[in-house]
Design a protein around this nucleic acid. Sequence first.
DNA 1: AATATTAATCGTATATTTGCGATATAATTA
DNA 2: TAATTATATCGCAAATATACGATTAATATT
Lengths: 110, 110
Amino acid sequence: MAFSKKAEFKDDEIAIAAFAKAISHPARVAILKVVAESQSCICGQIVEVLPLAQSTVSQHLKELKEVGLIDGTVDGAKSCYCINWTAFEKVSQMLNQFFEKTSCCKDGCC
Amino acid sequence: MAFSKKAEFKDDEIAIAAFAKAISHPARVAILKVVAESQSCICGQIVEVLPLAQSTVSQHLKELKEVGLIDGTVDGAKSCYCINWTAFEKVSQMLNQFFEKTSCCKDGCC
DNA sequence: AATATTAATCGTATATTTGCGATATAATTA
DNA sequence: TAATTATATCGCAAATATACGATTAATATT
């Protein structure tokens, strides 16, 4: 491949793709659900629920944290995760907008 | 890795992830925009606009076709692509619902 | 202090994705 | 009919992603 061409696209296209990528694996979708529903958000609880090893879950959490969808706080030996609602809604809106904008010119094709 | 664990998640989680994956690359986001805006939807036009080789664009188109977001019709030597609006809106709704449902339990965490 | 628990990170194996050139196929044009 | 055009597909190389066990570091428990 030589090198990735992602950077050659428009900023909004890159942003949409990046957020979509964050929820492009069932494990991360599941994690977001668990974290949103849970009161405590302890990493160990997520591991219990998912069919994945602790290290793998930790990696997925890291990815979600990197795009900003969740926040992580160290709480003693444990780690507490929670949804970053501001970011969460921003992503929701961004995707919504993409679908709306794209579907606005719904004529004359084919 | 031995093998993928994607199948071990819930159907709706897998579905959301699959559609998110379809728009998880800027090239495919760009293609969807071009196809939606274009009247003609000829593959060659898409290739002209994108910073990618013809074969690469063809592959991305194939992926979008496979998840059902676009339809492709052979028109002589050319190929005509257009958005499958039914699928498009279904995906839009599915993602929307995911974000809404997830954010409905927005309390007591962390 | 010694041990156990929790979770991040490292190293590694494998799988998947991305990207391209070359080729194949089919239709169009000269 | 020959040359050109349009696009899909094949085969390959490189990049990324997925998954795990082992290790580490830090706190908690005994």
